[in-house]
Structure formats: C-alpha cells, structure tokens
Amino acid sequence: MLRYILKRLLMMIPVLVGVVVVVFTINYFTSISPAAVICGSMATDEQIAAKEQELGLDKPYLVQIGTYFFNIITKGTLGDSYIYKTPVLDMIASRLPNTIRIGLCASVLSAMIGIPLGILAAVKQNSSLDYASTFLAILTGAIPSFCLCLLLQLLFAMKLHWFPISGVKTWQSYILPIVSVALMPVAMTMRMTRSAMLEAIRQDYVRTARAKGLPEKTVIWNHTLKNALIPIITVIGMNIGISLTGSIIVETIFNIPGLGFLMNSSISQKDFITTQGCVLVAAFIMTFMTLLTDLVYAVVDPRIKSQYTKGKKAGKKSKLIKGGDAA
C-alpha cells in the first residue's frame, strides 16, 4: 500500500509540470510585458527595457521556463509578485488558510446534507419525500452562485444582522461563505447518492440481509450504503477539490482574502507570476485530493484495496490455502 501511495505521489509531478507549462506558455504569448506592469503606467521605454533585462525576460522561452522550475526546486520560491514585490509563496501562504477553512467546512456541510437526502430519496423512491428532496437539492444547485451569495448577504447580514456582511474578522463571518459554497454541490451529491443507493438496493445481497431478519436500518446502512459509497466518494472528492481551490465569486462578494480572490485579482492586475503560482498551488490541491479519494476507495472497498496491493498479497494468499480445499 505504501508503495502505491509513493507511486501516486510521484505521478503527481508530471501533472503539475504540465499545468505550469500550459499556464506559463499562455502568459508568455500574451502581449503585455511583465516589466511594463512592474514599472507602472508612467514609465519610459528605456526603464521597461532595463527592467526586462534585470528580470531575465529577454531570454528565450525555454530558458525562462527552465529558470522558473529551477527556482522552485532549488530555492523553493515561486518568484516575486510584479505588483506587490513580495514573494508569491508568502502571499499564497497568507491567503490559503481562509480558502481551506471555507472549503473544508463547506464540503463537510454539503456531504452532511446531500448524503442523507439522497438516502432518503432512494429508500422512499417515488414518494413525496423523494420528490421534495430532489426539488430542494436541484433548486439550490440551479441558483447561480453570485445570486445565492447576494441573497444570503442581503437577508442574513443586512436585514437580520445575524452575520457580518463581509471580511474575515470573526468566526461568524465565515458562516455565510461556507453556506454559499456548500449549497451548490448538494444537488450533485444528493443525486449521485440516490442513484448509487437505488442500484445497490436492488442487489441480491440486500435481499440476503433482509432474509437474515436484520432491522431495516442495518440493511440500509451496513449493506446498501456501504456498497453505494464508491460513486458518492468520487463526487465528494471532486467537490472538496473544487471548494479548496477557492470559489472566486464567493470570495469576491464576501471580500475574503483567499486563493480564488488572489487568482482573480492577479489576472486583472496583469500580475502573471502570481497567477502562475496560484494555478500551481490549485493544481497541487486538486491532484492531491484525487489521490486521497483513491485511497479512500481502498478503505471502503476491499476489492480495490487488493488491486492496489497486488503482487505483494498474492504471495501471502497461497500460503493460507491448505491442501484438500479445492473449492
């Protein structure tokens, strides 16, 4: 199992490299020179040219991208922001905790709402409860993100004064953003849970469980849900990845200094090196979440676990089988 994890971690590297190359190339071929951005709108052409030379921006493409990677590996730096003149890594590090807090809590909340709704809808299929929960889930999923944020802001912050309108000063200021981010994936989680449960509930082993005389709750929980988990975990893993990389809209409306906000503002300010750094960090988070999801599969389904540890376990198994037990 450890070997599998290490292999997967190593496989993350080409993905991240690919992401950086794509973003770097896009930045490189846009017409705006970073030197012009750094020097500001009042600078002369000579100043800009001097700056370009200083930053090594007049060197060919391959040299520039090579230097970028070299700096990451040897100095552990993602460069300095053109606008803020501070290291990109520091800027991301100061903003990332906010995004992660919101992302994690929102994912947990969304799973806590979506999965029970899905189970309920599957168990009481085609009943009014099924239709009601489907309706609710799709309603929250269909409302556009910014609309939802503004509604929540106006109602709970402006009119009722339960929460602050924006910022991250107190723990209450996290509640509305968390709810905004959480409500959107609820629909997907709920539908996936419902369909996975419906499929599992038709299986023979559920009939066996009922024939054993087990209470319905045990049948649903231990026998049906546990087998329906694979697609549900996939959806949740994806949602966590997306939430963690920062919802730009939520962060902008609630004025949360997070990764999404930084990515957005760096693009509009033409601060491409920060954009590159943000994208790299976001890509890292996504691939890491994919790895975690795959590992959770192994925990949930022993067949998948054996696939990961194939080769090692085959040896052990042959020792267990004693002679005479042909079947």
Binding site: A211, L214, V300, D301
Partner: peptide, 23 residues
C-alpha cells in the same frame, strides 16, 4: 424479522451475488 434467519432461513440461487462484497 425475528422469524427470518432464526426460525426460517433461506439459501438463494446465485452464490456469486448473494454476499455483501465489503464485509
């Protein structure tokens, strides 16, 4: 439910799918 499994038990036709794969 008290009767099932304790008083009357059933063996099903297809053993391949009658057992819960994750237990």
């Amino acid at each position: 439910r008290d009767m099932r499994g304790a008083e009357i038990s059933m063996i099903f036709q297809d053993p391949m799918s009658a057992l819960n794969p994750v237990m």
